[in-house]
């Protein structure tokens, strides 16, 4: 247990891709996030687990500007404060997000889905008069290859199977070339085989990108996780490797205790 970092303890070096300090979020008196301190290195793949209502999705909402923290601050890439920015501005900084339920543009083709997510200007003018270059096309086709959807390029995204939608959404994050990817339950509703493939995909992204993955499926977590953060009641219960976390007394209490109560 020597590497286990206690909640709220600040590591010593400073080039974090994401740092949350003293973050609180209250919804109508309900404390979704309480005094959260979270630090993450560039290129890291971090897995966040925690029971329902632990504040995992709210934490992602706070990072991506979907809601604003009641207090505390979140900084990106060392010194960019996220709190005052809107969701689209945060995205343009290079923070991409895959939602829990796959959200793709169902009336657009797979190609168009990726085209719309491609890194580049987001202004009204450029979308009106900009041209799709051959580099753009190449990029789209290489992503299609990565996510294994080359066959489906002209299909409407709404007609894809659930697992393929998940991958398309990950592909859309790739198209954006985000520095930080927030991936909410990528394995939900996937078959074992698909889950394994998704895991490989995420692992291959780590290093080039930084990733935060929220997951429930412990098999999947085992497959991908290097460092795991356990959230409980809106703050960090502990951080460490999968084994360390699984052997942690308090984590067992939170999970098993809840189970016993049910």
């Amino acid at each position: 247990m020597k590497h286990l970092v206690q909640a709220g303890e600040k590591p010593t070096h400073h080039d974090f891709i994401l740092a949350a300090e003293g973050v609180n979020k209250v919804f109508d008196g309900f404390k979704a996030i309480t005094n959260l301190n979270f630090y993450m290195d560039e290129g890291e793949l971090r897995t966040v687990i925690g029971p329902n209502g632990a504040g995992k999705t709210t934490f992602m909402d706070l990072i991506t500007g979907r809601t604003k923290p009641t207090s505390g601050k979140i900084t990106f890439a060392g010194n960019i404060e996220l709190n005052p920015l809107s969701a689209d501005q945060i995205y343009r900084l290079g923070i991409g997000r895959k939602f829990q339920n796959p959200t793709v543009y169902i009336h657009h083709t797979v190609y168009d889905n990726l085209l719309l997510s491609l890194k580049g200007s987001r202004s009204v003018f450029s979308t009106l008069f900009g041209k799709v270059t051959s580099t753009d096309k190449d990029r789209i086709y290489s992503i299609l290859e990565t996510i294994g959807l080359t066959e489906c390029v002209h299909m409407l995204a709404g007609t894809l199977a659930h697992g393929k939608k998940q991958w398309l959404e990950i592909g859309m994050l790739l198209a954006q070339d985000a520095r930080l990817l927030l991936v909410d339950e990528p394995a939900a509703g996937l078959s074992d085989e698909e889950t394994a493939k998704t895991g490989e995909l995420l692992l291959s992204l780590a290093g080039k990108h930084s990733l935060i993955v929220i997951e429930h499926d412990m098999v999947f977590v085992r497959q991908i996780a290097k460092k795991v953060t356990v959230l409980h009641q809106g703050s960090i219960l502990c951080e460490g490797t999968v084994d360390e976390v699984q052997n942690n007394e308090r984590v067992r209490e939170v999970y098993l205790g809840r189970k016993a109560a049910h």
Partner: peptide
Amino acid sequence: TKFGKVQQAIRDSENRVLFSGYSTVS
């Protein structure tokens, strides 16, 4: 145009467009 595609994407899933970095307001 791509604008038209963004426009229809807003119709289908406005939040997703917002989280793809487009300022849906503009």
